[in-house]
Simulated scan of single mutants.
Amino acid sequence: MPEIFLNCDLGEWESPAQTAALMPYLHMANIACGGHAGTSESIAHCQQLADAQKPFAVSTGAHPGVADINGSRGRNLPEGFTVDDFTSLLELQLTRYISGADLNHIKLHGALYHLTETDANFRHAFLAFVRHKSLISIVCLAGGEVAAEAESRDLPIIPEVFLDRHYQSNGQLLERKHPDAVITDSSLITDRLEQLTHTNSLTAHDGSLIQFPDHYDHLTACVHSDSPNSLEILKAARSYLNQE
Results as ranks from 00 to 15, higher is better:
Leu188Thr: 13
Pro179His: 14
Ala181Val: 09
Leu173Trp: 11
Val182Lys: 05
Gly144Phe: 05
Ile157Gly: 03
Glu151Met: 12
Val182Phe: 09
Gly143Gln: 01
Pro179Met: 13
Tyr167Trp: 12
Ile189Glu: 06
Arg192Tyr: 08
Thr190Val: 15
Ile136His: 00
Val146Arg: 01
Ser169Glu: 10
Leu173Met: 11
Gly171Ala: 10
Ile138Arg: 00
Gly143Asn: 02
Gln168Glu: 13
Leu193Met: 08
Ser152Trp: 03
Leu173Asn: 09
Ile183Asn: 06
Phe162Pro: 04
Ile183Cys: 05
His178Asn: 14
Glu151Tyr: 03
Cys140Tyr: 05
Ile157His: 06
Glu194Leu: 11
Val139Trp: 06
Glu145Leu: 04
Pro156Thr: 03
Val146Phe: 06
Ile157Lys: 07
Ile158Pro: 00
Ser152Gln: 13
Val161Asn: 05
Ile183Thr: 09
Leu193Lys: 08
Ile158Arg: 11
Pro159Cys: 13
His166Phe: 06
Gly144Lys: 02
His166Ile: 00
Phe162Ser: 06
Glu194Lys: 13
Ser137Gly: 00
Ser169Met: 03
Lys177Thr: 15
Gly171Pro: 08
Phe162Lys: 03
Glu149Phe: 02
Gly171Asn: 10
His166Tyr: 06
Glu194Met: 11
Thr184Cys: 15
Glu149Gln: 12
Ile136Ala: 00
Val182His: 08
Glu145Ser: 12
Thr184Gln: 13
Ala150Pro: 01
Gly143Val: 05
Glu194Thr: 14
Ala181Pro: 07
Gly143His: 02
Ala147Ile: 03
Ala181Ser: 13
Asp164Arg: 06
Val161Gln: 04
Asn170Ser: 14
Ile138Lys: 00
Phe162Ile: 09
Phe162Gln: 03
Ser169Pro: 05
Asp185Glu: 08
Leu155Arg: 01
Pro159Gly: 13
Asp185Gln: 04
Leu188Arg: 11
Gln172Val: 12
Ala148Asn: 03
Pro159Asp: 13
Glu149Lys: 02
Val146Ile: 11
Ile136Val: 05
Ile157Pro: 02
Gln195Leu: 15
Lys177Pro: 04
Leu141Gly: 02
Arg192Asn: 06
Ala147Asp: 12
Glu160Pro: 06
Val146Pro: 01
Ile158Thr: 10
Ser152Met: 08
Ser187Cys: 04
Gln195Pro: 09
Glu160Ile: 09
Arg165Met: 01
Leu174Arg: 05
Tyr167Val: 14
Asp164Val: 11
Val139Thr: 11
Gly171Arg: 07
Gly143Glu: 02
Arg153Phe: 05
Gln172Phe: 15
Gly171Asp: 09
Val139Gln: 07
Gly144Ile: 04
Glu151Gly: 02
Ile157Glu: 02
Gly171Gln: 09
Leu163Phe: 07
Ile158Phe: 07
Gln195His: 15
Arg153Ala: 05
Glu175Ile: 14
Lys177Met: 14
Ser152Glu: 10
Ala181Trp: 07
Ser137Lys: 07
Gln195Ala: 15
Ser137Ile: 04
Gln172Lys: 15
Pro156His: 03
Asp180Asn: 12
Gln168Phe: 05
Arg192Lys: 11
Gln168Ala: 12
Lys177Asp: 15
Val139His: 07
Asp164Leu: 08
Arg176Asn: 08
Thr190Asn: 02
Lys177Leu: 14
Ile157Ala: 05
Ile158Met: 13
Glu160Met: 10
Arg176Tyr: 10
